[in-house]
Simulated assay, not measured.
Amino acid sequence: MNSDAPLPPGSRVAIAGASGLIGSALARSLTADGHEVVRLVRRAPRGKNEVRWDPGEQRIDSAGLVGCAAVVNLAGAGVASRRWTDAYKQTIRSSRVLGTATLAEAIASLDEPPAVFVSGSAIGFYGDTGDRAVDETAPPGDGFLPALCVEWEEAAEPAQEAGVRTVFTRTGLVVAAGGGAWGRLFPLFKAGLGGRMGDGRQYWSYISLHDEVAAIRHVIDTASLSGPVNLTAPTPLTNAEITAAMGRVLHRPTLFTAPAPVLRAALGDMAGDILGSQRVLPARLLESGFAFAFPGIEETLRSALR
């Protein structure tokens, strides 16, 4: 792809993390448009469109990536899956850093590498930004998640050095009923048990699952994009504003609150990610002509519930 154009029909696209919330939606979207999705799996392959890999051992069957127009890395242990013990922090780190390094080295070893390597990252890169809006030009913040994101992105260096266009999709909070943070929030709010977290003044930078997938496909198709690209809706809102919107959309009261000390006691270090404020703007997506289908929170919530 030498110019900004959609993938040619029947293109091969490899996805690591194809069974996850975003990966499975991306695979469905690509398949619906006639593309061939190659899934990276940790077990014995069950067909020609599966490639075995072991990111922990940094092993992959590189031959399975031959002929791919794009490789998308969405693999990694769930950040919000459980309490952040020291051991689980190491699991989060190794699943991302080693997986990215494995893919980047495999891509670099190919005689004809893919045109683009989309390496998933997160807005955790920026740390707590308070009420200050940041875009891709902002430096990394302080703490576990920013340090992780820096190392995670640096692990893609072999692909970059091999001349492969590499994009770091720094994803925000994906709004979907079937998983992620909102997969847990929707049942609480539907039961009338939802409410703001902490003082509610912290910014949450969200994106609909539909726009997340569309943005990844836009990144694949847009040859002028490389480096970090924020995948967040254009208008981040405070937790209190999002809580109110949840109440309006679900027609439920939002009287409950989760005080900061309670969250810290229940979640440990992870509470910092919930109570922290990230006002992140998708500057490079908008500059490159991407149009959000669901830019506002109420339409985003309704799209997730449909």
Rank of each mutant, 00 (worst) to 15 (best):
S3M: 15
L26Y: 00
G34S: 14
R42E: 06
R42F: 01
R43D: 15
G47A: 07
N49Q: 11
E50V: 08
V51Q: 01
P55L: 00
E57Y: 03
R59A: 07
D61F: 08
G64E: 04
V72A: 09
S81D: 15
R82A: 15
T85W: 11
V97A: 15
T100V: 15
A104N: 04
E105D: 09
L110C: 04
P113D: 05
V116A: 06
F117S: 02
F125Q: 00
G141S: 09
G143W: 03
A155C: 13
A156D: 13
E157P: 15
E157A: 15
Q160M: 15
R165V: 10
T166M: 13
V167D: 09
A177P: 05
A177G: 14
W182L: 15
F186L: 06
D199V: 05
G200R: 02
Y203A: 01
V213E: 02
A214E: 10
V219C: 11
I220K: 02
I220A: 12
I220C: 05
L237K: 01
A240I: 09
T243M: 06
R248T: 00
L250M: 10
L255G: 11
F256I: 02
T257R: 14
P259Y: 12
A266E: 09
L267F: 11
A271Y: 02
A283W: 03
R284G: 07
G289W: 02
I297M: 15
L305E: 02
